[in-house]
């Protein structure tokens, strides 16, 4: 494959996973609200903060439709519009899908016909159905459908794509993004607990997050088979058998990187991230410390991304002239 295509195929994997995980992030909040006491204050802007935005700026002068109902005029509506339907928002599902399409188009020659078709169908579906954030129940179904369609694309790819550098880079992109998004979804929980609130400290349960990540049963399995003091945080960060844990994603990145010319640089970064997970006594972390750890992991993921996306800068001289 062309050197130039590295970036596109890698981002194709990242954007596809980001679509799926953004949908899960939205649904994690639905679960949180369902599972909490009716008077619990939920901080909607946190959802934008965890995506790396300054929620105050993002929500300032938010353009609501002129015929907005009182429900739509709420902060919940604005945050959801920013995450789902506003194509000008860099974290919205519609924007991510446009980016996905752009990258797919750039490397069409690497994409099998069946996957190309599935990507088109995904795009058509999202552009049609994500025009509005919708009410909670409608939204829940829509987000579930978004996740399902993303997985269709991955499934088709897995069934027909040549096992090549492009396939490896796609999978690296997917798992890097997944690790990143799992930390962000965890951060929703952490930041909710750090919110100043007039009422008693909100008691959100990790169960909601685990539900949205499709990991509730395997968490119970984990508890039943693990000795010592463990919790959902250990599980999401270190349980390498759960395919949305950070540990699993890093293993997959390392395994997929082996055949790439710049694998040495990639593996070095992966090891640094793995070391970060091992040194922390996770169950003893305070909420603030957990938030800091998540920040460190995210910084490590950014470094890893840089190494992967710039193979030419991470090759030895001998490799370049080969």
């Amino acid at each position: 494959m062309l050197l130039k295509s590295v970036d596109n195929i890698f981002w194709l994997g990242r954007y596809l996973e980001r679509l799926d995980d953004t949908a899960r992030l939205v649904n994690a909040t639905s679960h949180l609200l369902i599972d909490s006491h009716k008077d619990t204050q939920f901080s909607w802007p946190v959802l934008l903060d965890v995506m790396g935005l300054d929620s105050k700026t993002a929500l300032a002068n938010y353009q609501l439709p002129p015929d907005a109902t009182p429900e739509q005029a709420s902060i919940e509506y604005a945050v959801m519009a920013h995450l789902i339907s506003n194509s000008a928002s860099t974290v919205s599902i519609r924007h991510t899908c446009s980016q996905l399409k752009y990258n797919a188009r750039s490397i069409r020659q690497l994409i099998p016909r069946d996957m190309w078709e599935e990507l088109n169908k995904l795009d058509i579906f999202l552009q049609q159905h994500c025009q509005q954030p919708g009410g909670r129940q409608q939204r829940y179904n829509l987000m579930t459908e978004v996740s399902r369609r993303c997985q269709m694309v991955v499934g088709v790819l897995d069934g027909v794509m040549l096992r090549s550098d492009a396939f490896d880079l796609f999978n690296i992109g997917r798992h890097l993004e997944r690790a990143d998004m799992t930390t962000r979804i965890m951060d929703v929980m952490v930041l909710q607990q750090l919110q100043p609130t007039q009422i008693k400290r909100p008691k959100f349960r990790w169960t909601s997050i685990l539900n949205a990540l499709g990991g509730i049963e395997s968490y119970h399995y984990y508890l039943a088979h693990q000795s010592g003091d463990v919790d959902a945080i250990d599980y999401l960060l270190t349980y390498a058998d759960f395919p949305r844990s950070i540990a699993y994603c890093l293993n997959r990145v390392a395994a997929s990187a082996k055949g790439l010319p710049h694998s040495i640089s990639i593996l070095q970064q992966v090891h640094q991230l793995q070391a970060l997970l091992k040194t922390e006594p996770l169950t003893e972390l305070s909420t603030e410390q957990l938030h800091q750890l998540i920040d460190h992991i995210q910084a490590g993921i950014i470094n890893l991304h840089k190494v992967i996306a710039t193979p030419a800068e991470n090759l030895s001289r001998a490799q370049l002239s080969a």
Binding site: L2, S5, R108, D165
Partner: peptide, 27 residues
């Protein structure tokens, strides 16, 4: 995609000693 050949733009190609080369991931 259908023929299995590379799709390149001019920036992916260069000429050295009157030989044309393609910039690929592995060199």
């Amino acid at each position: 995609q259908q023929t299995g050949i590379e799709l390149a733009e001019n920036t992916d190609l260069f000429v050295e000693d009157d030989i044309v080369y393609l910039k690929k991931l592995h060199g």
